[in-house]
Amino acid sequence: MITSRFLRVWQRNFVVWTKYYLSTLIGAIGEPLIFLWALGYGMGRYIVHIDGMSYLEFMAPGLWITACMNASSLECTFNTFTRLSTQKTYDAIIATPISPAEIAAGDVLFGATRSFITGNLVLAIYFLFGLIHHWSALFIPFIGFVVGLFFGSLGLCMTALARSYDFFTYYFILVLTPALMLTGVFFPVSNLPQPLRDIVSWVPLTQMVSITRDIFLNRWQWSSVGYIIYTLAFSLLLFLVAAKLMHRRLIK
């Protein structure tokens, strides 16, 4: 059973994060900006338009999601593993009335919080670059939070199984990077061959990228809400697996 005690774990992570937040934010904002500049202004000159948009406009929402994805993925893999294994912070926490599942919940929520913060900052920069034209963009940070919950839960599953930091290198290179390539961040999903397209359309990231793009362009529909609920449900499922794995890892 998960009680509100998981908020204490979130709070602990937040307090620690305030000690080094600047370095994480520079990384989190820097990456999408470099991509935006290199691909949008550089390579984008050779691309006339995609689906009626300039390449910069097409890519900006996807890069925004990438920043959110990375924030919670890094938090719930490398950082969680440090707390789990190197620092043994979680052994200290389960000595108190807080359960492993509550630790998992606090971690995923904090991962999502970092996605939310990163998302807002990147959005503010987009605004300065003149990439935001509609008030509907105010809803976008919420999507960042949902993306954070999804990748936080997935990352936590990986962490609960990991024996060393090397494991995450595989996860980032073999899972997350291909996910970026295939889910419509850099080119439309419709360019993929048919069977792959069908698979990819079930991946929540694909839907989140497309919804975010729609919101940027102020052409979102009520069906978008269904996709958000789908992503949340998927995240919950992953979270339950992560909580179970975390319990198995901490209680022998």
């Binding site: 204490r8 043994k88 052994d91 926490i93 000595a95």
Partner: peptide, 29 residues
Amino acid sequence: ILGIVPQDNNLDPDLSVFENLVVYARYYG
């Protein structure tokens, strides 16, 4: 009702002495 002093000092290295205690007290509500 248990207070546990484990073999490893699993303190929070990023936090100060005082902060370690504040954060830990919160785990007990």
